[in-house]
């Protein structure tokens, strides 16, 4: 849809996941309706949308865990419908509200999946230990999972992906039901994965969290991707302009100077010394320069980053909702 507008990654984009006309229907109801997207290596891609918008179904199709009605998807060059084992060998999946065998310890749980992955015995112990250490579960490695909190289970799920050394990590609603601190820790772990070059696909209905970690997002609604791109781009597209900068400064003719900065579309004077600029990009450095150059006294310079929530709300306000589909 808006792939050509995306310049997050350098020119020849190395696509690890690409979907064309991907569709899934259950009987007459359509869960995923002919979606197209491409995800480049190393990016954090967010699938957003209300519950039942088709996010999980899309994920399951990518893993070959549910049938594809029509269209095609390729994951790391493999077709998940025909070569699911090759896909699943390389892709880590953390399901929504992941579960573990309560009577087994964290290590035993990971050992089971490690065996299913076909890791050699010597390799297993080392990988499990380091993965548990990475997610901060080393002290409870020998405790039974029955005693784990929700946040610990999510981290254990992430440890499984780390242990797998997955090239792509697919996380379905990873932060839902976590307290704010656990959420922060988890988002930190996601950033670490990205730093290691893992492609992360994240589904969520918690917009502000997604905004904090995602390079690009796709907004789902009724089984379709209605918007796709980086958050600032979407802001420009939906809100008209991406950045709102507030300047508090004293000096002659500041409003005029601010309006002359390239990229600024509008300057409002809120008070004698307060101005609000709307711009297509982050114009704070230019605004500071303009104020200082005009002998003004700069007191405050703040930016309202375009929030995904605003974009989301605005977009769906503008486009009246069709029928609400339930795919869950």
């Amino acid at each position: 849809m808006s792939e050509q507008q995306t310049e997050v990654n350098s020119a020849p984009r190395d696509l690890v996941i690409s979907a064309r006309g991907l569709t899934r229907h259950y009987g007459k109801s359509i869960a995923v309706d002919s979606i197209d997207f491409g995800i480049a290596r190393g990016e954090v891609f967010g699938l957003l949308g209300p519950n039942g918008a088709g996010k999980t179904t899309t994920i399951l199709m990518m893993l070959g865990l549910t049938e594809i009605s029509s269209g095609e998807v390729s994951v790391l060059g493999f077709d998940p419908a025909r070569e699911p084992l090759k896909v699943k060998q390389r892709v880590g999946y953390l399901p929504d509200a992941v579960g573990f065998y309560d009577q087994l310890t964290a290590t035993e749980n990971l050992a089971y999946t490690a065996k299913l992955m076909g890791l050699a015995r010597a390799e297993r112990a080392a990988r499990i230990e380091s993965a548990l250490a990475r997610v901060g579960l080393a002290e409870v490695a020998e405790k039974r999972v029955a005693t784990f909190s929700r946040g610990m289970r999510q981290r254990l799920g992430l440890a499984e992906i780390i242990m797998k050394r997955a090239e792509i990590a697919i996380l379905d609603e990873p932060t839902s039901g976590l307290d704010p601190q656990a959420t922060q820790e988890f988002l930190g772990l996601i950033r670490e994965l990205k730093a290691e070059g893992v492609t992360v696909l994240l589904s969520s209905h918690m917009l502000d969290q997604v905004q904090r970690v995602c390079d690009r997002v796709a907004l789902f609604r009724g089984g379709r991707i209605v918007l796709m791109g980086a958050v600032p781009e979407l802001a420009v597209k939906v809100l008209g302009a991406g950045f709102v900068v507030e300047v508090e400064a004293e000096g002659p003719g500041i409003a005029r100077r601010l309006a002359m900065i390239p990229g600024v579309t509008q300057v409002e004077t809120l008070a004698a010394d307060r101005f609000r600029m709307t711009a297509e990009r982050d114009v704070r450095p230019d605004a500071a320069r303009a104020v200082v150059a005009g002998d003004g006294a700069l007191r405050r310079l703040s930016v309202d980053e375009p929030s995904l929530e605003t974009i989301y709300a605005r977009y769906f306000q503008a486009q009246p909702t069709g029928d609400v589909r339930h795919a869950a």
Partner: peptide
Amino acid sequence: NRRTMSRILAQPIY
């Protein structure tokens, strides 16, 4: 019910 099904089936097995 333990929600382990999708996690296990996401491993490389049929």
